[in-house]
Structures are given as C-alpha cells and as structure tokens.
C-alpha cells in the first residue's frame, strides 16, 4: 500500500493576528507555525495502515521554507519520504491551484490512497483533497472517521461523519482521496529515534517550473476565486467584558448572572 499524506503548515491555534499593509495576508513575523491538526490525524491513520498492510507513506507539503518544519515532523513521526512544493509563485493560490500542483508532483508515483485533513485552520477551504480527486479522476470520501482496506487493496470501506451524530459507511474503489477528520485516532509523538532517522530520509523539492506550471496558472491569476482583502470582523453582539482580577471578574459575573440576567 503506497499512501501519500498532504500536510499544511498553519499558524498555531492561539495566534493573535495582524493583517499586512496590502490586506491580502497576515503578518507572519511574530507567528509560530505548526502542522494543521486534522492533517496530523491523517498522517497517523496512514502510518497505522502501513503498519498493518506494509508499504510506504509519503508526506507532501506546499509552502515556503518554513514548511520544512512540518515535513520533518512528518518524517520523524514515521513517514518514509517527502515532497516539498516550494515557489514564491505559489503565494496567493487558492485550493484549485494547490490541488493542481499536488496532482503534477505525484504524477507517476502510483499512490493507492491520498490522505488530507478535512480542512485547514487558516483558509478553511475544505476542498483541496476533493479537487485533487477530481483532477486525478479518483473517487473520494470526505470527513472520514474510520478506514478499512479490503479486497487485497482494491477497495476501501470508510466511515464518514455526517451532521447531528449520523454516520455513513461507504465502499469505494482505490486509488482514492480520503479527507480525514480529527478524532479518528490518537496521533503518536515523534520519538528521538524517529527524529534521528528523519534526517536521512529523502525530501524531493519541486518548483513551479519543475511541475510545468506557468505563472498564469499560479497564485492569484491561476485561482478560480478572487481573494480581494482581509479585515477583522465586527462584533455582532454586544459583549459585556468583566474587568478586574480573576477574582473580581468572577464575582461580578456571578452577581450579574443572578441579578441582571436572572439565570442563576
């Protein structure tokens, strides 16, 4: 079983953001980056499948130099080799451009399954994996909570999460793209041995030119939707912020809940 896992590097969850002067992206100077949460679950699921069925796990990340940290942590967790798609021309690309670049990079690699996370915590398109499946002509399943490979690697039986506590079990043929939901497993931590071994593993780099992509197919120009500007949302509801020390704020809160809101 040859499995590819797409990993995206995103700002840490508790990040406080500033928007850059052009209002097209955030200011990255003070941010710390980590691997997108559901992508980590996707990698764990891939490693478990490899342990059960044999084969190999590749990881792929599209992003600038800093994305190497995400790639190396994927290799340290147990992936065998990596693809790093890096080019300034990728800046500003939408999910379609990213999926196109991934499809090109893995052409001829004969993967049986591609895993992605359900969605990224930064742009939250929730569509790179699905677009990739369409570009490759493969079936897909989204929001996956369980994966079982059957019929000697020809099919996959997957449990999908639907809304309101409903689940669906579907069988699709392989190769396929599966988008993995967080909570499907408990991801492992990289061991010291894993971190040491990662240093010897292959990382193949691809520029836009290596992938045969021209500037008209990349970034804002190549995107299917027009990302115009970022801004901070206005608060819709008036929130009464209770000031003071934690003790004072807690006391004011209890008082207000009893006498003003009358809910206690």
């Amino acid at each position: 079983m040859k499995i590819l896992v797409c990993l995206k590097q995103v700002p840490e969850k508790d990040s406080r953001y500033k928007i850059d002067d052009l209002a097209t992206w955030i200011r990255e100077d003070d941010l710390v980056f980590e691997t997108n949460e559901s992508d980590v679950y996707a990698l764990e699921e891939a490693l478990r499948l490899k342990e059960k069925l044999g084969g190999e796990v590749g990881v792929l990340s599209l992003g600038e130099e800093r994305a190497l940290k995400t790639i190396k942590s994927g290799l340290a967790m147990g992936a065998d080799r990596a693809f790093h798609l890096s080019d300034p021309a990728f800046q500003g690309s939408d999910a379609f451009v990213v999926a196109t670049a991934i499809a090109r990079a893995i052409s001829g690699q004969n993967f049986d399954i591609i895993f992605t996370g359900v969605q990224s915590e930064d742009m939250a398109f929730a569509q790179t994996g699905t677009i990739l499946a369409q570009l490759l002509g493969w079936p897909h399943a989204t929001i996956v909570m369980e994966v079982n490979v059957s019929e000697g690697g020809k099919k996959a039986r997957v449990k999908r999460e639907l809304e309101s506590n409903l689940f669906e079990v579907v069988e699709i043929s392989l190769p396929a793209v599966l988008t993995i939901q967080s909570g499907i497993n408990q991801p492992r931590y990289a061991t010291l041995k894993g971190i040491m071994q990662a240093k010897k593993k292959e990382i193949r780099r691809f520029s836009a030119q290596d992938l045969g992509l021209e500037s008209s197919q990349l970034g804002k120009t190549g995107s299917m939707v027009d990302h115009q500007k970022m801004f901070f949302p206005e608060k819709k509801k008036k929130t009464v912020i209770l000031e003071g020390t934690p003790e004072e704020a807690a006391r004011t809160l209890m008082e207000r809940l009893r006498k003003e809101a009358k809910v206690l």
Binding site: I26, A124, S223, D226, Q228, M230
Partner: peptide
C-alpha cells in the same frame, strides 16, 4: 468568508 479560525474575514469576488 471567515478564515484563520474565525478571527479574520476574507472578501472574495467572483472570477
């Protein structure tokens, strides 16, 4: 639409 976990809004035009 909301990006960065709902902390930033993104204006998107039709293309």
């Amino acid at each position: 639409r909301q990006v960065f976990n709902g902390k930033i809004n993104l204006q998107v035009g039709l293309k």
